[in-house]
C-alpha cells in the first residue's frame, strides 16, 4: 500500500499506509493523526483539511478545482503549495508523499 508522511505543525511525523482510491484527508482521519479537522467530511466545503505539499510532490497531486480554489482562498495561512487534502485521491504514483500541517485549521 502507498505510504504518506504527515508532519504536524510541531514537527511530529506520522508515516501511514493509505489505500489507493482513498483521500489523503481520510488517511489522516482514519489513523487519528491530529492537525486535520475535516469538518465537512470531504465535500470540499469547509477548508479544514488544509495541508502544504512538499514542493517535489506538488505537481503530482494534480490541479485544484475551482471550488477548491475558492475554499482555499478563505483558509488561514495559505501558501503556493497549499491543497485541501480531501481533494487528493491516493494513487500508486503518490507512494512516498510528504505533506505538512498548517498552524491551525479554520
Amino acid at each position: 500500500m502507498p505510504k504518506v508522511t504527515y508532519i504536524e505543525y510541531n514537527g511530529t511525523e506520522h508515516v501511514v499506509d493509505v489505500p489507493v482510491g482513498t483521500s489523503v484527508m481520510r488517511g489522516a482521519v482514519d489513523n487519528n493523526i491530529p492537525g486535520i479537522d475535516a469538518d465537512c467530511g470531504g465535500e470540499c466545503a469547509c477548508a479544514t483539511c488544509h495541508v502544504y505539499i512538499e514542493p517535489e510532490w506538488f505537481a503530482k497531486t494534480g490541479a485544484r478545482s475551482s471550488q477548491e480554489e475558492s475554499m482555499l482562498s478563505f483558509a488561514a495561512v495559505t501558501q503556493d503549495n497549499s491543497r485541501l487534502s480531501c481533494q487528493i485521491e491516493m494513487t500508486a504514483e503518490l507512494d512516498g508523499l510528504v505533506l505538512r500541517m498548517p498552524e491551525g485549521q479554520h
Partner: peptide
C-alpha cells in the same frame, strides 16, 4: 466520535468566519 460534523456553521463559501 466526530462532533464537528454538523451544519450549525453552514458549509461552502459562506461557512462561518468566526467558527473557531
Amino acid at each position: 466520535a466526530r462532533p464537528r460534523q454538523h451544519l450549525s456553521f453552514g458549509f461552502g463559501i459562506h461557512r462561518c468566519v468566526g467558527n473557531r
